[in-house]
Design a protein around this nucleic acid. Structure first.
Lengths: 136, 136
DNA sequence: CTAGAACCTAGAGTCGGGTCTAGATCAACA
DNA sequence: TGTTGATCTAGACCCGACTCTAGGTTCTAG
């Protein structure tokens, strides 16, 4: 079940450009094979890995960290602890990020609520305006 | 209580470069005043606004959106609904982002847990490795 | 046979958000 | 007085992660 780069782009949501770029950056576990005419051939497992990559990326893992991971995986058994450590590092990072966002969200929600009250009463212009006192 | 750019940098955590850059980008509500010798003078309210900016930035609000907001604030009363709408837009964005991160975190945590079990039993090399089946 | 789509490479360009440099001025201290 | 350090401007540069271009080949349908 061979897949062309266009097919993989369509199914992964990445552009063909991005797929070639990822390959140059060494983000594929298995070197991408070529047809005799030079065209790239992908398989289902590449698609699965890309789905994981996309997840990791969208949660803020830099390509360099993904490469670090895949480099270990490529070396085969023996470094599982290290791989796990990379994942845990990112896990902690994401957790911290969620806390940070939640924190900002709380502050914002409070501001918005207070301001809505003020607006409802016809008082206004005091919402996070550095030139004026803060109603919160 | 006048503050120099260096003082503001120290207290805001932004670099002097970034402060000048923010000014060029129109992110200050009140135009930054100058001493007769051309040096910038800041005040406590600038610092307060910068703290807010930093929050918004670190939660992913682009500078362009902050500028949009501050432009409205600068125009004075009458556009409070619009300002509120900007905040709500970002609020929704942050909420969605938190959900996305939480989602990825769940997947990762599951993977990590399963893998730790496998490792503990001496089975290995199956953690998100595109060349091998997945134990999850 | 031919048009158009899909593919190839190398390398340039983009965007956001800064960061840094050069060269000048100015302040403060020993 | 001289040196150190803070500031100024304009503009170049950086980074990550793509995105796009130019110029060329190859596949596919009619």
């Amino acid at each position: 079940m061979d897949l062309s780069i266009g097919e993989v782009a369509r199914r992964s949501g990445l552009s063909v450009h991005a797929l070639r770029f990822y390959e140059r950056e060494g983000l594929f576990a298995n070197p991408v094979r070529r047809l005799s005419n030079g065209r790239r051939v992908y398989h289902e497992e590449d698609l699965e890995w890309l789905a994981i990559c996309t997840r990791l990326r969208s949660s803020g893992m830099p390509l360099a960290m993904i490469r670090e991971y895949i480099d270990l995986a490529r070396q085969g058994p023996g470094n599982e602890r290290e791989r796990l450590e990379i994942l845990r590092r990112h896990q902690r990072h994401v957790e911290a990020r969620i806390r940070e966002l939640q924190d900002t969200l709380d502050v914002m929600s409070h501001k918005v609520r207070v301001y809505e009250d003020h607006l409802a009463r016809g008082e206004a212009d005091r919402l996070w305006n550095p030139s004026h006192p803060d109603p919160a």
